[in-house]
């Protein structure tokens, strides 16, 4: 798997620091898990964070904190690492292992040749995450975003003026980008998407179906 498109560095640094919204943390995390180059970058930020931890002014913990910790260690049964059976997500897609702990909703058709499955996130944040599946050759509607959109290709490919995006590639879209991706002919394209704000469809068809496409 050759990865040609990577997340911007500040997004990786925010990921390493644990500052991203859950949806974004998820999509960047799946990319990093499969990309040695970005894993190195994240590790470098973690090392810098380790230096910061060493250097920070210590703040006293509660006077009985050590005893509390020891009693919590002895009182609570050893955390068992739950067998990693994962949830049954069906066989339609090769769900990345990072998604195994998430509940993934039912497939919903959103446009001709395009369907999605929402990923249930814990928090009440304003970002959403979903798996988007598009048939080969689908021309996605021209659209812009009111927020940001992070897209990670899991299977297949799409292309737009920014280039071709295959498995592992990461595409970052914000409200300045007006793109119209075309799905490759080699097979369906499955993407993991995190999105803030709303999608705005341009063009007549977009205006017609827009109200129904609550991605």
């Amino acid at each position: 798997m050759t990865i040609n498109h990577h997340p911007p560095e500040d997004l990786l640094a925010d990921f390493a620091a644990g500052r991203l919204e859950e949806a974004h943390q998820l999509v960047v995390g799946v990319h990093v898990a499969g990309c040695a180059r970005c894993a190195r970058f994240v590790q470098a930020i973690e090392q810098l964070a380790g230096l910061a931890l060493e250097a920070v002014e210590p703040v006293p913990v509660a006077s009985n904190a050590f005893e509390q910790v020891m009693s919590r260690i002895h009182d609570t049964p050893e955390e068992r690492t739950a067998p990693d059976t994962g949830r049954d997500h069906g066989r339609e897609e090769d769900i990345p292992s990072a998604l195994r702990n998430y509940r993934i909703g039912k497939r919903r058709r959103v446009a001709p040749g395009v369907s999605m499955r929402p990923i249930e996130l814990a928090g009440a944040e304003n970002a959403r995450a979903f798996l988007l599946r598009s048939a080969p050759g689908t021309r996605m509607l021209e659209h812009t975003h009111t927020g940001t959109e992070l897209t990670l290709v899991l299977e297949g490919s799409f292309s737009h003026e920014g280039g071709r995006f295959g498995p592992g590639d990461f595409d970052y879209g914000d409200d300045e980008i007006d793109h119209r991706p075309i799905v490759g002919q080699e097979g369906p394209c499955v993407c993991l998407v995190a999105m803030t704000g709303d999608l705005r469809m341009n063009g007549l068809l977009g205006r017609l179906i827009g109200p129904f496409v609550r991605l």
């Binding site: 644990g18 859950e22 380790g50 230096l51 910061a52 928090g123 009440a124």
Partner: peptide
């Protein structure tokens, strides 16, 4: 693979993420 401080940082970072998510979920 990791310095001790960096490793401990990642543990604390994940705990903070979990704490915030749990709180957000409880609020919701």
């Amino acid at each position: 693979t990791a310095g001790a401080a960096a490793w401990i940082f990642t543990i604390a970072r994940n705990l903070r993420i979990d704490m915030f998510r749990r709180r957000a979920r409880a609020n919701r």
